[in-house]
Nucleic acid binder design. Structure first.
Lengths: 352, 352
DNA sequence: TTGTACGCGTTATCAT
DNA sequence: ATGATAACGCGTACAA
């Protein structure tokens, strides 16, 4: 069942059928509706393979993932991100191909050959953890359109959450609820993500006239185990040095901290406030429920998709960096508004 | 940069270059290596678009998802499943396209047109929640290859976990640890998933000579809220009727139950044992950590991919149903082995 | 407004 | 072993 069959049935040339399908203005409305009728009747669908070859476009974009690296963020929000990308692409009749990068053992299966040089995809979206500098350079050298999910150094358009604003929101919230000695769990100094988030955290402290202590940031991974370990260490500090609130880099770190507090008999939120980046499905169900910074990963995907589509339309589009605002979800791991006043005075009096 | 450019550079016909690329035996090793040299030197990669048209195959398989329906299972394990599928496909040089089903408003973008009739993909993988009976019939009528993730009624090959065995494992574990009056949270009678799991649960009870009470299964959604509500209701039963252990359909239901137990001052695992299907990342970090049934979703994806590939190879392959064994992860929400003896006697003595 | 002829880049068939 | 030529199915100038 090809376009020729339709042409034969309609007693026209196949080029006419093609024009009808592509809604060319150079064909009469009468023949259009007549041929559409035949197309529907014969249940014809153009071969995308042939169309793609003729139009020299795959109408397909690739999403690069790294299966080897457990990238918790992507891992967790993958479904939403993909959903967002998909919904942006489907509008413009693009499809989404998922591809694992890296086959260290078989370089011939590298995505660069499989997808890019191949022209199997018209553009690429990838997380900044897979978009290394040299990789970006290579793609830029090929003038191949791509977008990063997450801030990146190279001259590339990207979408990300405003992590600085997020750090500020969490710290400002804790200060507003009367906490005065804030700590930050956990991360490595050189991570971009940490730098941004801690920057916002420090800014909120500075705005409140409080010192932004370097030691406020406890090093370590942002997982449950190190949240627990750091938590015990912190809670065992002498009363005068012990922080009364913590901003956690992840829900997992907060879980660990929660466990440590429970073991040490420290009341949350009374004696210790906890607020965390991200908002995992179980965060409403911890004891107490966790105050979190929710990030809309679906919209993140939409933004990435739309940005790439724009770039496909206009290859000379100037670089764009889109930042999405996170949203504070206040639950019970931070003191309530009413409690803040009384608690705050008492707490700060005792601590300082 | 086309195959013709290589042919010109090598002073041969393009058909010869094509044969070299496809490693045809009808070309001398000498010219092979000579032309491969030129290919590498000129950095040539065949256009997949042209290859696909000529070979009449997209070398692409589609994964159908439903963004509108919050299908918790897929949602949560999406990354792993995709990873598994991808790793199976890459071996055979297939790519994976993700596609959202349903555009109720625009039927012309239905995946049936976009992917199947189009021949944009050579085969399909989908969860049983999207593979409705009529949809299966339609695909079968087209003789289009596809695999279901999750058991399905239609004559279709599928992969799934052995839910019956899972129900049995959880119940048998509770019995082995001395619990005697088991309940089952939660689910609807007509759900296939529930039927299988509860079947295994009931079988374990029967094997232990215990009645498999119909009322053992408390109806409701398998989420945290209903786990909590059902939990309170159950814990408030008179001592003689109150179950001393529960198998939960999901981690979330278990969280709710855990919360209810804490509020009623019921000790877990001493006074109440809890074991749940699935093993979410936070289940080791609840208080107490949750005894779970781990399912290897990556392998599930691999199986689905491999099964589809086999079907692509041999369209007349007989139907296959592959069941993967779940794995019991014993944590602290069920009594320890040593405690089981003593507790069991006391408990059963009190209860019966 | 419709039809003709060729191009898209590759593979496959059949001569040589 | 190699080369010429015809598919593959569709899009599109250009001619009619």
């Amino acid at each position: 069942m090809t376009i020729q069959d339709i042409a034969d049935a309609a007693q026209v040339a196949k080029s006419t059928v093609s024009k009808v399908i592509n809604d060319s203005p150079k064909v009469s409305d009468q023949t259009k509706s007549r041929i559409w009728g035949i197309i529907r009747e014969m249940n014809y669908t153009p071969s995308s393979l042939a169309t793609q070859l003729a139009k020299q476009t795959s109408r397909n974009i690739g999403l690069l993932i790294d299966l080897s690296r457990e990238h918790e963020f992507l891992d967790h929000f993958f479904f939403n991100i993909i959903g967002g990308i998909e919904s942006a692409l489907v509008e413009r009749k693009y499809e989404l191909t998922i591809s694992n990068i890296q086959q260290p053992d078989r370089p011939e299966q590298h995505f660069m050959k499989r997808l890019v040089l191949n022209r199997r995809v018209d553009g690429l979206i990838a997380n900044n953890s897979v978009l290394t500098e040299p990789l970006c350079e290579e793609l830029l050298a090929h003038r191949f359109p791509f977008i990063s999910i997450g801030e990146v150094q190279s001259p590339v358009s990207w979408v990300d959450f405003d992590n600085e604003a997020g750090g500020h929101m969490l710290a400002a919230h804790l200060l507003e609820r009367g906490y005065r000695r804030l700590a930050f769990f956990a991360g490595e100094r050189d991570e971009k993500l940490f730098v941004r988030r801690f920057g916002g955290f420090a800014r909120a402290l500075a705005e409140a006239g409080l010192p932004a202590p370097d030691e406020a940031a406890l090093r370590g991974l942002a997982d449950t185990d190190s949240g627990y370990a750091l938590g015990l260490r912190m809670l065992d500090l002498p009363a005068g040095e012990r922080p009364d609130a913590v901003v956690c880099m992840s829900n997992y770190a907060a879980f660990g901290l929660l466990k440590a507090a429970r073991e040490r008999g420290v009341d949350v939120p009374g004696g210790l406030g906890i607020a965390a980046f991200d908002d995992y499905p179980m965060s409403p169900y911890t004891t107490p429920p966790l105050t979190c910074l929710k990030i809309d990963t679906f919209t993140l995907g939409v933004s990435a998709g739309e940005l790439l589509l724009e770039q496909l339309r206009d290859p000379d589009m100037p670089l764009q960096k889109r930042m999405l605002e996170p949203q504070l979800i206040v639950r019970e791991s931070t003191r309530s508004e009413t409690a803040a006043g009384g608690q705050a005075v008492g707490s700060s009096a005792a601590d300082f």
